[in-house]
Computed example of a mutant assay.
Amino acid sequence: MFFHFRNKFPRLNIYWDKYLEFQQRLDVPAKTILLDEGKISQHYIYIEKGCVRSYFNKNGEDKTVQFFFEEEGLSSLDSFVNNLPSQFTIETIEPSVIYLLPKQYVSQLIAELSNEPDFTQMILYMSAQRQTHYINEFVSFIRDTPEERYQHLLQERPHIVQRVPQHYIASYLGVSTVHLSRIKSKLAKGKTHF
C-alpha cells in the first residue's frame, strides 16, 4: 500500500525492505484480470511497469473508473478493508510488471508502521492526495462537458491520452468512441486557427 511513498518517507525504508520478500512479482500481458468485480480483494497491487484500469460492468458495457501507471499502488479499497465484494474489476491495459502483497502482510506492515512518528503524516498525506483527486474527478464529471474533461486530460494527465486505447478513454469520459473522435477532430481544427 505504501511502497510508492519510499522517497517521501525514507526513514521508513526498513519496513518496505522487510516486506519485499512477501510480494509476488508478476510479469503479465495486457488484458490480465487482477481482481474480478464481485470478488473480495485479497492483495494490494503495486505497478512497477505498465498500465492498469479499474472498471465496472453496467448492462454488459464496461465503465472505466480510473487508470494507474508506474509506481502507483491500488486495490478495491472497500473490498480490501471490509471484506466486501469488489465493485470494480482491475485489469492490465499494457503488458505489465506488478507486485501483489497479500492482505495479511499489509495488516502486519500497518501494525508495525503505526508505532512510527512519520506514519500518521504519511497516512494523512496519502489520504488527502487520493481524496482530492477523486473529488476533482467527481466535480468535473458533474460540471464539465466531455470535451472539457478531455481537454483536462490533455493538460493535466497527457500520459493517459498517449498510452491508453481510445475506447477506454471514451469509457472513462462517459462517451462513445465516435463522440470522442468528434471531440478530437474539433480540437484539432481549433488548433489550426492559432
Rank of each mutant, 00 (worst) to 15 (best):
V106P: 04
G50W: 00
F69P: 01
I160Q: 08
L109H: 00
H179P: 07
K103N: 09
L84A: 07
V52W: 01
T89E: 00
L101M: 10
F141W: 10
Y99K: 07
V65F: 12
P102N: 03
L77T: 12
S140P: 12
C51M: 11
N115T: 15
V65M: 14
R157D: 11
G50R: 09
L154C: 09
E72M: 06
Q104C: 10
K49Y: 10
F80E: 00
K103F: 08
C51I: 06
E72K: 02
E148P: 05
L113D: 09
S176G: 04
Y105K: 14
E94C: 10
S86T: 03
E71I: 02
V139T: 07
E71H: 14
S76N: 10
L101R: 00
I160H: 05
P117M: 12
D118L: 13
E137C: 09
I169F: 01
Q87M: 14
G73E: 04
P102Q: 03
L113W: 08
R163M: 13
P117I: 10
C51L: 09
R163P: 04
F69C: 04
Y125F: 15
I93A: 00
A170Y: 02
I142Y: 07
S79Q: 05
P95G: 06
V139N: 06
D144C: 01
I135S: 10
P165C: 11
Q87G: 13
H167Y: 12
V178F: 14
R163Y: 10
R149G: 07
V175F: 06
R53K: 11
N82A: 07
Y55P: 05
N57Q: 14
E112M: 07
N82I: 00
V65W: 14
Q129F: 13
E156R: 12
V164H: 00
L113R: 13
Q155Y: 13
V65L: 08
F56A: 09
N115I: 11
K63H: 15
D144N: 07
P95W: 02
T120C: 14
L113Y: 07
E70F: 02
P95H: 11
G73R: 06
N82D: 09
F67L: 03
E61W: 13
H133E: 12
L74Y: 05
I110F: 11
S54F: 10
R53T: 01
D144H: 03
L173D: 05
L154D: 03
S114A: 13
F68T: 02
P85E: 04
R157A: 12
V164A: 04
